[in-house]
Each structure stands twice: as C-alpha cells, then as structure tokens.
Design a protein around this nucleic acid. Structure first.
Length: 258
DNA sequence: ATGACTTGCGCGGCAAGA
C-alpha cells in the first residue's frame, strides 16, 4: 500500500501537478494540506476521473485538508478536543486493504509564528490535542499513519541552516519537545527508520533562491504506529516536484507498506 | 538587509505562510 502526503499550497493552483502525481506515482492514498478552498470549490471531478474518492475538510482562503483514496473510505473531520476551533486542519479515514484496515490522518499543524503571540499558544495547544487523540488511536492497535505538514523541524540535521531557525516556531525547544512527546507515545518517524542522513528536506522557501541553494527543511512527516512500522518497506521524497513550473513550496513524501 | 516569493481576496494592497 502506497501512502503519500503533500502540502499543495492551493489545490486549484496545483491541479495539473496533482493530476500528474495521481497518474504517474499512483498512490493508494494521498493526504493533502493547504487546499485553500471550501469543499464546493475542490476539483472533485478531476480526481474522480483519475480513479480517486476524495474526502475534503475545506475552509475558505486558508488551511483545508483532504484524503484521496482509490478505495472507498470512512471519514472523520476535525481534531477532537476544542469545539471552538474553526480551522480545518485534520481529517482521518479508515481505508480497507488486504490485511484489514489502515487508519490514516491528513494533518496541517499550525505554523505558530510569530512566537510570543496567540499563534504560538494555539500551535502548542493543537499539538497537545493531537497527542491526546493519537494516544487513543494507538490503543486500537491498528496500522495507523499520521501524515502531513507538521510545521516541526525535529532535529538540527533536518535543516540546511539550523541556526537560522533557532527562534522560529518550527524549531523552538518547546516545539521539538512537544513533537518528541508525540513520538514517544510509540510512533516511528517513517523517514528516520530508514536513514540517519542529514540534508533530506521536504520544504524550500519561495524566497531568496532557497531551492537553488538547497536551503531546505524537513517538516512533512509520516508517523507510524508499531503495527504500521512493522509493514514499512520504503520511504521516498518526491523532490523533483520542487523543480517544476509553479511548484508548491513543499514536495510529496510517501511510504510503502506491505 | 528594511529585502527577497506565492496565494486569496478582489481590484487596494494586505494577511498568511515558514
């Protein structure tokens, strides 16, 4: 089973890249973030034409997440734990496969900048809600994949220039500690189970020639329950997507489960 | 380096991103 995640930075701006990816990479499941549209404006027909069901949790202008799947899925929208939170950043699905079911979430974790404001408070609170929800999901003892844009640089080796991120919400000690507390529930960071290499990135800023200088960061992650980690065959960053015309600033990352 | 892009909204230039 091939499971991919990609922050598209506007699904309508990226529709041709998206259709290419569905056709050529052909993931069984694709988690999308930053749709920047409501469900009524999501290109449902275009993805259906490629053979995909789409579960969308949209929002006008900002945020928005989706799960595309070749097979029909059962869906839950929104991260539990705060009924007053109106931002569309979480969608979860049960996807049937030959072994039973794989539970997959598409996550767009808050950026949190500028720090010292309610934006950073919201990020940390959202991470704590995610930890609480994930703890319950782990108790199901299923194959579980929490995939998405975490807006967290886990370690210095995950940035070209870690010093530049020292005071940023993506890399503050408190952010990294909260991410570790999620991992320490029993998740594996899929990429880190296959390589210790530095210099593996999923995001390059549009500004200042970041792509040309390979000034990137690794902030898109797939977290695996033990049952999913046991089935992991490979991890691939589709880096070449960043070199296209009008790219997203993020590239897809995907795993194979047996 | 006060910068540098890209997007949505909507027709002004902001706000937001990371």
């Amino acid at each position: 089973m091939r499971i991919a995640t990609w922050n598209v930075n506007s699904v309508r701006q990226r529709l041709d890249h998206l259709v290419w990816y569905l056709r050529e990479v052909s993931p069984d499941v694709l988690c999308l973030q930053e749709l920047k549209c409501e469900e009524k404006d999501f290109p449902l027909a275009a993805v259906a034409a490629e053979g995909y069901n789409a579960a969308v949790h949209g929002q006008k202008t900002f945020n928005g997440v989706a799960i595309l799947s070749k097979r029909p899925i059962e869906v839950m929208r929104g991260l539990p734990g705060d009924d007053s939170d109106t931002q569309s950043r979480y969608i979860e699905a049960e996807v049937p496969d030959e072994h039973g079911v794989v539970r997959i979430a598409s996550i767009y974790l808050p950026n949190g900048n500028p720090t010292g404001t309610e934006k950073y408070t919201y990020k940390l609170a959202w991470m704590e809600r995610l930890r609480a929800h994930a703890k319950g999901l782990l108790e199901l003892e299923e194959s579980l994949v929490l995939a998405g844009d975490y807006n967290v640089i886990p370690e210095p080796r995950d940035a070209k220039d870690p010093a530049a991120w020292e005071k940023d919400a993506l890399f503050l000690p408190q952010t990294r500690a909260q991410f570790r507390s999620l991992l320490n529930l029993g998740f594996a960071d899929a990429l880190r189970t296959v390589t210790d290499d530095a210099g593996l990135y999923t995001f390059w800023d549009y500004q200042a020639g970041a792509w040309q200088r390979n000034n990137g960061i690794r902030i898109d992650h797939l977290l695996l329950s033990p049952q999913a980690a046991d089935r992991l065959q490979s991890v691939t960053i589709d880096k070449e997507m960043r070199a296209r015309e009008k790219p997203s600033d993020h590239v897809p990352i995907r795993i194979e489960l047996d």
